[in-house]
Design a protein around this nucleic acid. Structure first.
Lengths: 186, 186
DNA sequence: CGCCGCCGTTCCGTAAACGGAACGATGGGC
DNA sequence: GCCCATCGTTCCGTTTACGGAACGGCGGCG
C-alpha cells in the first residue's frame, strides 16, 4: 500500500499569496524597497522576496517582524477585513466601518465602491434620513433618481434619502468613497 | 574561532506564547482534546502541543489549519484586540479607519473625536493636501486658523491644509466626525 | 486486578523556512 | 562612456517546524 497521506498544498497557497500581495502593497505605499524593508525588519531578502511572491509559508515570527516594521497590526495582512459586515450588490459594495448613536440620531459610516457600467438603486428610507458621500477616486453620480448629483475625487454630496435613490460610476474608473448615513431618532 | 554568533530571539517569544495560550483556551472552551483537534486540523499532535506551550514558532499554514478547525478567524488568536493606529492629542483623538491609494492621490479616513473646551492646532501639510470633515454629533469649528469654518451634526467642512489649522468643539458636547485627508501624488 | 483506550509530552528523521551571498538588471553621478 | 550603488531574484548550507511513533500517566471496565 502507498502511504496514506502524500500531502497536498494547493488550497492554502491562495491565502499565502494574498498575504504576500498585501505586504507588497503596504511596502509600495511607503515607497521603500524590498532590500530596505528586509534589512529593517531583520529578515533575509530571500525570505521577504519569496513571501511577497507567495512561494513560502512564513512563520509567525517572520510575519511579525515585517508587519511591525510596516507599522501595521499583524491582522492587517491576514485574510481580508473578513469579519466586517458588507452589503454587496451588482455594482456597489458597501462595508460598514463604524456605527454610532447619540441623542439625536444614529449614524453608519460605510466605505463604498461603485463599479463602472451600471446603476444601483436603493429604495426610500424613512423620512429625515440623510446621506453624505465623500468621493476618494473616480466620478460618482448619486442621489434621488429624479435629481441626481455628481462629484469627482475630493467632492462631497448630500441628499435626503426618503425617496428612491441610486449610485453610478461615471467613466471607466471604479469609484471609491465614504458614505455616512444619518438616521434621526424616531 | 566560533562563527560570529549572529542572532538570538528573546523578544518575540512572549507573543508566541500568548498565541498558544489563546489556542489552548479556545480548545478548552469547546471541550475537545489536543489529540482530537490535531487530528481534525490535520496537524501533528507534537506540533499542536509545542504550539500551545509556546515552544515553537508556527507557520501561517499551521495556524490557519488550527483556527479554521476552531471556527475562528486567524486574527482571533494573534496579539491582543486590534491595535489600530491612533493619533492622540489633548482635545482630539483620531483613529485611522482606512487608507487608500490610487493613481492621483492617497487618502486616509479617520474617525475624529473632539473634546469640548480646547483647541488643537495642526501644522501645515504639504501643498495640495485637503481635509474633508463630516460631523456626526456636536458642533465643530475647524479649518485654517485665520478663517475657521463651522458645522453642526450632518454638516460638512472642507479646506486646504497647507497652512496651520485647528479643531475645536463649540458648546458642551463632544464632537464626533469623520475626517478624510487627501494627499496628492508627490 | 490486568487490560485497554485515550490523554498530553517527548523523540526523531524529513521537509522546508531561514539568512547570507552571488547574480543580472537598472539608474544615476562623474 | 565607465563605475558604483541599489534594485529584486536565485542559489545554497544551516536551522527548525513538521508529522509519525513511542512514551508514561490516568480512568473505566470486565
Amino acid at each position: 500500500m502507498t502511504p496514506p497521506r502524500p500531502a497536498r498544498r494547493p488550497p492554502l497557497d491562495a491565502d499565502a499569496g494574498a498575504v504576500g500581495q498585501r505586504i507588497r502593497a503596504l511596502r509600495a505605499e511607503r515607497g521603500i524597497s524590498l532590500s530596505t524593508l528586509a534589512r529593517a525588519a531583520g529578515v533575509g531578502k530571500a525570505t521577504l522576496s519569496a513571501l511577497e511572491n507567495g512561494t513560502r509559508n512564513p512563520t509567525l515570527e517572520t510575519l511579525y517582524a515585517i508587519t511591525a516594521q510596516l507599522g501595521v497590526p499583524l491582522a492587517a495582512v491576514l485574510a481580508g477585513p473578513a469579519a466586517t459586515p458588507t452589503v454587496r450588490g451588482a455594482t456597489v459594495v458597501a462595508t460598514l466601518l463604524e456605527s454610532f448613536t447619540d441623542t439625536d440620531a444614529s449614524y453608519e459610516l460605510y466605505r463604498l465602491r461603485v463599479r463602472p457600467g451600471g446603476e444601483q438603486v436603493s429604495p426610500a428610507h424613512r423620512p429625515g434620513v440623510t446621506e453624505h458621500v465623500t468621493v476618494f477616486a473616480g466620478m460618482l453620480r448619486a442621489g434621488p433618481l429624479d435629481a441626481p448629483l455628481t462629484a469627482a475625487a475630493g467632492g462631497h454630496l448630500r441628499w435626503t434619502s426618503d425617496v428612491p435613490h441610486g449610485y453610478a460610476a461615471l467613466g471607466e474608473e471604479e469609484v471609491a468613497a465614504s458614505l455616512l448615513l444619518r438616521y434621526p431618532r424616531s
